[in-house]
Amino acid sequence: MLAASSVEMRKVNKYYGKFQALKDIELSIPPGKVTCLIGPSGSGKSTLLRCINFLEEYDSGEVRIDGQLIGYDAPNKKMSGRRLREMRRSIGMVFQQFNLWPHMTARENVAEGLIRVRRISKADADRRASEALAKVGLADKSASHPSRLSGGQQQRVAIARAIAMEPKLMLFDEPTSALDPELVGEVLSVMRTLAGEGMTMVVVTHEMGFAAHVADQVGFMEKGELVSVDSPDRILHRPEDARIQSFLRTYHERNSF
């Protein structure tokens, strides 16, 4: 069992100029559980996710990781860069576009954070990078540059890069949306393994199957509001809110043939 973090979001608001991207978000993410966020594009799912590691700066409210406020020391007083970096070390993030560094091999991509951030020796970092790559099934690709890998392999390297840092919380921002359909499965299966090990995971996704089978709770967002957070069954199979029903209807229509 891994050490796993909890996340509490209280009255979180975020504006882009006059546009309100997040409206009074209230969300509890229990340790060791998988939370999936679904909803139409532009509804604020990614923005919410990115507030958790303060990649996106929320304007008001609180985001707490294991009780510790992230981004601010007090309301309107930004946290120092050093403290923010310390908090981010235990939060892994996986992006839609993978964001691997193209000038480094798969192993170097994974080892970089260990060497620069965790300050461990290159030999140890290489060893741990190889282990992380083996875990995502890419032991044989450690010397390859990202351009030589398929999308699914690149995303698995990105997951290895995050888990090598031994995070207590993993954020996934539409991890399979940029992948060809036949490559989605390999990434989801790595994520399923991670969930089985008790990692706290927050996943923005359009993969309803993953949400239905792996998530412990599913949040539905629309127009910057977290409309509802409940069990996968109640959100995906017996939704009460008309907005969720309409979203799922569109989803099913698009995915049936």
Binding site: L55, R88, M93, W101, G113, R116, A162
Partner: peptide, 14 residues
């Protein structure tokens, strides 16, 4: 791409 720096910031690089 902006994501290049973001990936580095997200793991806590200076």
């Amino acid at each position: 791409p902006k994501g290049q720096a973001e990936a580095a910031v997200a793991i806590g690089m200076t």
